[in-house]
Simulated scan of single mutants.
Amino acid sequence: MRVAIAGAGAVGRSIAAELIEAGHTVLLIERLSHQFTPEVVEEAEWVLGDACEMSTLEASGIERCDVVIAATGDDKANLVLALLAKTEFAVRRVVARVNNPANEWLFNESWGVDVAVSTPRMLAAMVEEAVSVGDLVRLMTFRKSQANLVELTLPDETPLAGTPVERLNLPRDAALVAILRGERVIVPQPDDPVEGGDEVLFVAPTEVEPELRAALGR
């Protein structure tokens, strides 16, 4: 997969390194000369220029990218890039970083954003997940479907211990996608039991979350 990342600061470089390690081809676009450091991520292609300018995007061959990641520290720049990538270059998937939570409502399909990643929201979710037992924690929202990835850690003394997945009275629109048990990642089968201390991950729309809580004894 070919991925373009706009913004070669600490965030952009870290994403690039991870994607390269996973075997993807990465293009880094940076407008600031002091952050243009190809020696830091040598395996990536580098372009010095403003990712909000058509000329830069054309020169970088962004239309050949499968994914564009707008990872700058400027929400306005990330929105402009997302819109250009989607409407002018028909990039299949656009991911945009949200720096200011107050701007999160803008990061949607009308601006060409397929996936919005809010760093403050994700940090808050991770903190909540680390300290919450027995309640749903919303980890992320899938923009197109408006469904959420939610997590719940079952209490050690849960009355559901030993109950097979097929016997959980889950809402119709809630999908159990994984059970995390210690170091194991379990892809749930109908006869797999849940146990106290399990972290259970669901994809579910917001409106069924109360039913999901009830089904899990909360």
Rank of each mutant, 00 (worst) to 15 (best):
Q146L: 07
S33T: 10
A44E: 02
L27M: 14
D156M: 12
T56G: 13
F36D: 04
A214N: 14
N78K: 04
P193S: 11
L28W: 01
E18N: 06
R92C: 04
S55V: 15
E207I: 09
R2K: 14
E30D: 09
E88Y: 00
M126A: 14
L176D: 12
A22N: 10
A90H: 13
E166D: 15
A116M: 11
T72D: 02
P210G: 06
T56K: 08
A124N: 07
A17Q: 15
R218G: 11
F89I: 10
D173N: 15
R181A: 13
E129V: 01
T25F: 08
E109W: 00
G7P: 01
E88W: 00
M140I: 01
E207K: 10
D156R: 15
D191C: 00
M54L: 13
L79R: 07
L57M: 08
A4H: 00
A96C: 03
G197N: 11
L57P: 08
S145G: 06
M122Q: 11
S14H: 10
A8I: 00
W105R: 10
F202N: 00
I29M: 04
E157I: 03
T87F: 03
K144M: 03
L123G: 06
P193G: 12
S14Y: 01
L79W: 03
I179K: 07
E151Q: 12
I62R: 11
E211C: 04
P171Q: 14
R138G: 05
V194I: 10
D135F: 09
A215Y: 07
N108F: 06
V113F: 05
A147G: 06
G7R: 05
I186L: 15
L160H: 07
I15W: 01
L106M: 15
